[in-house]
Design a binder for these strands. Sequence first.
DNA 1: TAGATTGTTAATCGATTAACAATC
DNA 2: TAGATTGTTAATCGATTAACAATC
Lengths: 218, 218
Amino acid sequence: MASPQQPKIAKRPSIRRLPQYLSLLRQMRSVGRPNVSSAHLACDMGLEAIVVRKDLGITGIEGRPRIGYEVDALIKAIEEFLGWNDTSSAFLVGAGHLGSALLGYGGFADHGLDIVAAFDTDPGRVGTMVHGKAVFGMDRLAELRARMQVHLGILCVPASAAQAVAELMVDAGIRGIWNFTPVKLKTPDDVVTHQEDLASGLAVLSVALSQLFATQQD
Amino acid sequence: MASPQQPKIAKRPSIRRLPQYLSLLRQMRSVGRPNVSSAHLACDMGLEAIVVRKDLGITGIEGRPRIGYEVDALIKAIEEFLGWNDTSSAFLVGAGHLGSALLGYGGFADHGLDIVAAFDTDPGRVGTMVHGKAVFGMDRLAELRARMQVHLGILCVPASAAQAVAELMVDAGIRGIWNFTPVKLKTPDDVVTHQEDLASGLAVLSVALSQLFATQQD
DNA sequence: TAGATTGTTAATCGATTAACAATC
DNA sequence: TAGATTGTTAATCGATTAACAATC
């Protein structure tokens, strides 16, 4: 009962892997490699080839038997699928340790992201520059967001302030929040959030490490 | 055919959620709350109560009907399960933007982690202090690791150096690598790694955001 | 053509959700 | 006791893996 030409639905795990394909493909392009097989990509990423083919399928790109995928076309298709082909602006809220680091991290340009300004409640930080980005008071958020047409906000405040600040961002018109706090945000349906939880990654590693030691009777 | 008292196997998604329970429970403890139900935790985390009960089950703690879980006991059990009850030392390799930020981030203490030293290849950084942590040359890695009994390494070098530096860490005796590079590391079986991939999180958010705009005919 | 590689359709696997008995 | 909440067992759901036909 499937429609004859149904658009492939992008599963979350596949989306998560796309940036890694992109990184590999850009490397290949930089050394002038024209084509690549799913088996080759799979080897580089520690996956099975069938996973790669399924993942790449969601971008709409088709490979050619005996040849594989065209590196250039694949890069373009992934960038377009992710919306990373043209740069979008973001605000960063909370210019503490982690926030400052993200302001200084140059790699976001590869992901179509440009952090154009930072915001903070600390009067000692407001008015300063951090890695070349101006830090504004929270009272300027709505005004500057509208003027600069920014839709994405990066949340780097302490856990205790997370929900309240997120609400300020939503009120100011921010539609997507990249949440670096350990707090699960409650936001309206027309706002999307993604929690980047460092602690959860450390938990997985901690358990794996203790299992490793346990199996070795250490 | 299950053994009568089989130890619950900890699934990855459950492990990932444990730090968030821990964070909430510590908050509850700080305001003197003695018990909490799975329904209450579920509400705070945006989950179903049954998920919470399954997750907490892996720590070995049992709740009591009509009362719920004891906050104190649950905190202890999660900390113990994750090995966060006593602090373990870690080295950080690559003291650039992100590396420096992690060195300055105080929150790892809550997760039983103490970054005791940093390493870098840049002669301009070696010998300096970053956020109170000494930066050593890579040649000191093996010696200091053995002396300080460090098992965990945090990898924050550029993608191009990631695999090579990871191999140096393994050779030096590091058994767990928290990988902040976009490179899938190839390591021996007796080394565990966890990739903390910011780009994958951004990808999920980017796609969700563009779907949001698409459904609104923006 | 023969052979390699893709993409599709089906089967397996694992995680989540639901139903319900146990218990305080 | 009655009622609320837990933990277990079964059912559903979704993702991964396998088998294989299509194609250059």
